Amino acid sequence: MQQLIDIGVNLTDKQFDNDRKEVIERGIENGVVQMILTGASLKSSKQALEIAKNYPNTLFSTAGIHPHDAKTFTNHTMNELEKLAQHDEVIAIGECGLDFNRMFSPQDIQEKCFEAHLELARKLSMPLFLHERDAHERFCEIFAGFRDLAEKSVVHCFTGNVEQVKKYVSMGFYIGVTGWICDERRGQDLQNAVKFIPLDRLLIETDAPYLLPRNMENKPKNRRNEPAFLPHIVNEIAKYMGVEPEVVAKSATENTRKLFKLPEV
């Protein structure tokens, strides 16, 4: 079985409180040999690190503040994130970025928080785990001042169109693809866009517990996504890219280890 790495697992989510260990084990049984746990607030970043410490060389984490929570951002929280980033398990700054879809934090605060993360990643020479929804143009404008960071960054859970993916690829970003591609209602733009992601810029993820693949047979009754379902997403990506699933798996795994400097297992 080809090794897979899930670059985006929200394992601190309360939906996993009762069976977190089993979820990890099921992922490993299905070929997901490493997972990166998403830090989306100071609290969840600390929690993700603590979980990752229990699974050396298998689980890793990120440290950041999601744009939804940008209103909680202060100089103190950024200092705390910098301390977290000193741990070997923390391999990227983020989840950070812009989300103009639901505007849980004001735009100006989101932008200040985003730029603070970019400055921190530059200071620490670390990769970035990025979020962008309905904010493509402003996202690119802000990143224009940080172009040196693009080649060490992944636009996680990309759901945009052909034009947007071409722009991101031209800037040097890695692109993270989720089970959104399995959605016949909302995923059509992504199904077309993946054709324009070079294999050497592709990363794969579940974004569990969110985005359970809609076209998966025998869906769990709890409607919860988990790393064990990553092989299904790989098959869908391969179908729309016009390559074999093994090619997607091998490329994404090599890219992930290169970007985040993960050990081979």
Rank of each mutant, 00 (worst) to 15 (best):
N30V: 13
L149F: 01
N101C: 12
D134E: 11
D13I: 14
G27S: 08
S45Y: 07
Q34N: 10
I197P: 05
D183H: 03
K123R: 15
V194R: 03
C113F: 00
S41E: 09
Y168Q: 01
A135I: 10
Q164Y: 00
Q47Y: 01
L262Y: 07
N215T: 15
Q15T: 15
E119A: 10
N101F: 15
D99G: 08
S170K: 05
N57A: 05
V154H: 00
V155F: 02
A40E: 10
G242N: 03
A92T: 12
I65K: 06
A208M: 11
Q34T: 12
H68M: 13
D134R: 05
M216P: 01
W180I: 13
S251D: 02
T12P: 08
I204G: 00
I24F: 04
R20W: 02
P227G: 06
K239E: 12
K83S: 08
L37W: 03
H117T: 05
D134Q: 03
F73I: 12
G39W: 03
E111Q: 11
E111T: 04
V265H: 07
T72N: 15
T72F: 04
L4G: 03
R20Q: 13
R26E: 01
Y210S: 08
L259W: 07
R214Y: 00
N30H: 13
M78R: 09
I51R: 12
S153Y: 02
F100D: 08
I142M: 12
P67L: 13
Q164R: 03
G179N: 11
L124Y: 09
G39C: 04
K53P: 09
G172S: 03
L212V: 11
D6A: 04
C113W: 00
H117V: 06
C113P: 02
D88H: 08
A116Y: 05
A238M: 07
I204F: 02
E132A: 11
Q86Y: 13
R214N: 11
T72G: 06
E115C: 00
G172E: 02
F60T: 10
E205M: 07
L118N: 08
P198K: 02
A150V: 11
H156S: 04
M1H: 06
N222F: 09
L118R: 09
